[in-house]
Design a protein around this nucleic acid. Structure first.
Length: 886
RNA sequence: GGGCGAUUAGCUCAGGGGGAGAGCACUUGCUUCACACGCAAGGGGUCGUAGGUUCAAAUCCUACAUCGCCCACCA
């Protein structure tokens, strides 16, 4: 790669540039802003990634979108805050440290709670900033001076405060309910942390003997026969004729020889299985409900280790699946297993470790959801919070509508300890921010804190205000709350978004954010989720290493529409890398030609191309801004891509060259330089939120040692340059050039060979346009000399290729060169196309309904098309006739 | 069982009531002094199917099909 003239290499090397600039930005504190009351705020809190984690493509997309919005608003002059931080991630982090201990042959119990927590903190200090340093590599312009952690002092204080307040309000309670237990993680998890997966399984039909009627049975159906050991009833539908006579009777629970009643409950679906259900209140959520309605006892036969308990009689000590086989064998032996049916049913798995969840009855802490859900639904219904795209509001509302209480206690050590103490003498329960000295009931000093910690999502639910100093009334809260927008993946609407909303509404004067911008998931090239088990994950850091952060960012946001998933394809990276290189080289060109540039004092000499690119540029400013306002980030990126590549590079730079090489006046050269510099600088500003590094680098080359582009003012649309009629004129010139190039290529004119061109304008005003664009046609179509006529050509060249564009006939005389047959074929094809177009247009214009009902301008446009096509058709036919006569 | 999304060129996807678009891939020609990570020219699609609304439907509506996702108390 040679460095022609400037010393700037012809291939863009992102590595060097990116390393340099992020450090500079952070050192100079561009991303840190204090609340300025007189300034309009724009604030985002970053969805805190897990401290254990490393950046994956989901983070990369999420944070790129946030960074684009943040950088854009910062440039627009908002008082901008993007607040970063990390999540302590209870289960994940604890598991990681436990793994580490296991390698040393230790368990957490060997260390004890306190020492174990020290280890976790050590771990956090050592590895916890991996992801934040990766976010820097991505270019995230967040305010690191305000970085927070869900378990830092401030956040912890907020957690305690919230817990105590909810407790005192009766919105947090403790009780024995059926919960989801993960036998591997050894903790409860909440309902949404259970992933239901369809599995092939067996439905076993088992006969239970009726006590007072030997020889009579009731047959139940179950997928989990081992839980029958804990059955406390058999239920049938109250109106099921088959079983009516048995309701109220007693049956003998096989294998256990326990007497259990037959009850009637409308929950039972008579059409499913046998219409009779064994009821195990201790091991099934539905059975638990039925059990409560009918006051059935709980018999716990599966323990927290997924091993059968003492209550399971001779099966005690067996693993749950082993027990299942033994139970089945024993039933078989007794002739009670009468049918095994293959069915597909859904099985709950732990979303962290994928173990099969065991529903258990256990004493846990819960948040009462109904009173919190109502206002949270209201805030979205009345528009105080807007979802983008809107359809996600429905998903959110649907979830809250059927919400159940939230189990928040976790049997872990790493997390926010539940601020509740139990008196060892009178069993009084004391909820308080700080450890109480004495029991407020009996005065005893023997108090023991609840061993459990809170669900990780409990603390992240407070993130929008806990990070800004709540419960203190801080300046940050006053100014930056509510935050402007929350940007996150659609997979955590329930986990996080909904919970932030109800917590915000409960503890703050209002909603935590005004808009929720939801994006899709990043999938692999085949459209599958990226996962460790599939091994199809792509490491964004490797991508950055190879292609640069700008390329990764731009690639992630283009070709994708809000809320939709995105397939990650390496080929697209190359295309984007090429775009970066294109920008780089266009900038090299501009910089080379701006060397020694001093603005002239005299009036600029604007050319058609100057006015055209300025008109296009200001349209690009308007479009980009409008699209960003609507969160159409991919479209905004596409608009910039097209403008830079197809208009600025392919046309404007090419058109401007002769002026720069001294072929016109000094004033013209000077004007060209000015326009080049102006449009490039403005375009770099527009592009900066998307590709912060390369734009910063180019900005500094353009501006000398000026300030960072990241705080340069967002370009304003220069409406004085808006000139659609002029754009049309330029389009005509461009069309002529394209047509001429096409003829050259199709007839095999050697590249570089200058050829004569004859242009016939259909009227004087078109002739004027062509005169203005003459030099462009010469230059870009390699045409010289050009003969320009208006109206009819007295004598049409016989040996010539011909083409017609709106209002212009173009002839390329090629004595001895032209292949007549080829030319006839080419023109015939053109003629067929234009004939088709004309027919459709004429059809429309003959349609009375169209003329009567279509808007005037549409009809006019159609009429103009018709004229154009007719002229073109006539010219083509003429030409064909002429050629065929020869 | 309910809901949502997708279905447009070989591939990946934009677009969206009034002349079918991009990138990649493909064909042809070019070491043209910003860029071969490039330039120029070109081929390629009855916009999933069937109805409906409309002067006009790829676009709106209704069914259906296929794929994907989410929710649900399928013992």
């Amino acid at each position: 790669m040679t460095a022609a003239k400037t010393g700037i290499p012809t291939t863009y090397d992102p590595k060097e540039v990116e390393n340099k600039w992020y450090r500079n930005w952070e050192e100079r504190g561009y991303f840190h802003q204090l609340p300025e009351p007189q300034q309009q705020p724009f604030s985002i809190v970053m969805p805190p990634p897990n401290v254990t984690g490393s950046l994956h493509l989901g983070h990369a997309l999420d944070n790129t979108l946030q960074d684009i919005l943040t950088r854009w608003r910062r440039m627009q002059g908002y008082n901008t805050l993007w607040l970063p931080g990390t999540d302590h991630a209870g289960i994940a982090t604890q598991a990681k440290v436990e793994e580490q201990l296991a390698r040393e042959g230790l368990s957490k119990h060997d260390l004890g709670r306190e020492k174990f927590l020290e280890r976790v903190w050590d771990w956090k200090h050592q590895y916890g900033n991996k992801i934040t340093s990766q976010l820097r590599l991505l270019g995230a312009s967040c305010d690191w001076q305000r970085e927070r952690f869900t378990m830092d002092e401030g956040c912890s204080r907020a957690v305690k405060e919230v817990f105590v307040r909810l407790y005192r309000k009766g919105l947090i309670y403790r009780g024995n309910y059926i919960i989801n237990w993960c036998p591997k993680c050894q903790t409860t998890i909440s309902d949404i942390e259970v992933e239901h997966q369809d599995r092939e399984g067996q439905l076993y039909h088992i006969r239970y003997p009726v006590k007072d009627n030997p020889g009579q049975f009731i047959t139940v159906a179950t997928t989990r026969p081992e839980t029958m050991l804990g059955d406390t009833a058999v239920a049938v539908h109250p109106e099921d004729g088959r079983y009516q006579h048995l309701v109220g009777q007693t049956v003998i629970l096989p294998l256990m020889d326990r007497e259990i009643p037959v009850i009637a409950d409308a929950y039972v679906d008579p059409a499913f299985g046998t219409g009779a259900v064994k009821i195990t209140p201790a091991h099934d959520p539905n059975d638990f409900e039925i059990g409560s309605r009918h006051n059935l006892p709980h018999v716990t036969v599966v323990g927290k280790d997924a091993v059968m308990t003492r209550e399971a009689g001779k099966y005690a000590g067996l693993d749950r699946y082993e027990a299942r086989q033994r139970v089945l064998a024993d039933l078989q032996a007794e002739g009670l297993l009468i049918l095994t049916e293959e069915i597909s049913h859904s099985v709950g798995h732990c979303y962290r470790c994928d173990s099969v969840i065991e529903p258990l009855v256990s004493k846990q802490w819960f948040v009462r959801m109904r009173p919190l859900a109502e206002p949270a639904m209201e805030a979205v219904k009345d528009g105080r919070i807007k979802f983008v795209p809107e359809r996600f509001a429905k998903i959110y509302l649907g979830w809250l509508e059927n919400i159940k209480d939230w189990c928040i206690s976790r049997q872990l050590w790493w997390g926010h300890r539940i601020p509740v103490w139990y008196c060892q003498s009178c069993h009084q329960e004391i909820c308080s921010e700080e450890a109480p000295e004495n029991c407020d009931g009996c005065g005893s000093g023997e108090l023991v804190q609840d061993p459990d910690v809170l669900d990780t999502w409990f603390s992240s639910a407070l993130w929008p205000f806990s990070t800004m100093g709540w419960p203190e009334e801080t300046k940050d809260l006053g100014h930056f709350y509510p935050t402007s927008v929350l940007v996150t993946g659609r997979d955590i609407i329930f986990f996080w978004v909904a919970r932030m909303i109800f917590m915000g509404l409960e503890f703050m004067p209002g909603v935590p954010f005004r808009e929720v911008f939801i994006h899709g998931l990043v999938l692999d090239a085949k459209g599958r989720k990226m996962s460790k088990s599939l091994g199809n994950g792509v490491d964004p850091i490797e991508v950055i290493d190879q292609y640069g952060a700008d390329t990764l960012r731009f690639m992630l946001v283009t070709g994708n529409t809000p809320g939709n998933d995105l397939r990650f394809q390496f080929e697209r990276l190359e295309g984007t890398r090429n775009f970066a290189n294109k920008i780089w080289n266009a900038s090299r060109f501009v910089l080379m030609n701006l060397e020694g540039y001093v603005p002239l004092s005299q009036e600029p000499e604007y050319s058609l191309a100057d006015r055209w690119i300025l008109s296009r540029y200001q349209k690009t400013v308007r479009d980009t801004t409008a699209l960003l306002e609507r969160y159409e980030i991919g479209e905004a990126a596409r608009v910039l891509y097209d403008f830079i590549w197809s208009e600025f590079c392919d046309w404007y730079i090419e058109l401007v060259k002769p002026r720069l090489y001294g072929k016109e006046t000094e004033a013209s050269k000077n004007t060209a330089q000015m326009v080049l510099g102006h449009v490039l600088a403005g375009t770099m500003q527009l592009l900066h939120p998307f590709m912060p590094f390369i734009t910063e680098e180019i900005w500094h080359h353009l501006q000398g040692d000026g300030e960072s582009i990241s705080i340069a003012a967002w370009p304003k649309a220069e409406v004085q340059w808006d000139n659609p009629p002029l754009e049309k004129e330029m389009e005509l010139v461009m069309d002529v050039i394209r047509a001429a190039r096409n003829m050259r290529a199709e007839t095999g004119v050697p590249p570089g060979k200058r050829v004569e061109l004859v242009l016939v304008a259909s009227n004087a005003s078109i002739k004027e346009i062509l005169i203005t664009g003459m030099s462009y046609i010469q230059q870009l179509a390699g045409a010289e000399p050009i003969r320009l006529e208006v109206g009819e050509l007295s004598e049409k060249p016989s040996q010539a290729a011909a083409a017609v564009v709106a209002g212009v006939e173009i002839y390329l005389p090629l004595v001895g060169l032209i292949d007549l047959d080829k030319e006839i074929k080419r023109l015939s094809k053109e003629l067929a196309e234009v004939t088709k177009e004309l027919e459709r247009t004429v059809g429309k214009l003959q349609n009375q309904g169209f003329l009567a009902k279509a808007p005037q301008e549409v009809v006019e446009k159609e009429e103009a098309k018709k004229q154009e096509y007719m002229a073109k058709k006539a010219a083509l036919e003429d030409r064909l006739a002429q050629l065929q006569a020869n």
